[in-house]
Amino acid sequence: MKGELKELKLTVNGKPCELKVKANTLLVELLRNELKLTGTKVGCLDSACGACTVNIDGKAVRSCSVLALQANGRKVTTIEGVADGDKLHPIQEAMVEYGAIECGFCTPGMVMSAKALLEENPSPTREEVREAIQGNLCADEGYVKYIEAIEIAAEKMRGGQ
């Protein structure tokens, strides 16, 4: 049925959530409209731009490409769950310090792709960094400083900082 609500249990940014959603609700709609986590951006809804990238069980996923119900039982991390209180994650810190951010609309997705990469592969090559953010379109900053900031963050994270 079109309007029928389904039960959904998931963890978002470390907090367990239990809610009812329509079957056709996309994960990005759940995050933005229901949970008011608007840090996750919508650029295209075609899984082409990567602005809505979140982490599901540590993997980078475009939240417009999955239904909310597909995240049932999973751990979802959004940009709001990346910093530790006031302390920025090394990826965020590097992007701020290194001047990688311009308009900022692609930034949350970029951080989430980078985070998934570095958690799986702490010492990526430049090609691997490029590949990890290949699905994240940026409109203005040229990717150079994003790539370099992710490399700086990787180094910091390996140093145990």
Partner: peptide
């Protein structure tokens, strides 16, 4: 000299509100 942008923190944490984020 290099200075971090004044809006970078809001943008990198997802706090920055764009028009579509307003409710």
């Amino acid at each position: 000299k290099a200075m971090p942008r004044v809006d970078a923190r809001a943008k990198v944490t997802g706090e920055a509100k764009y028009a579509a984020d307003i409710e």
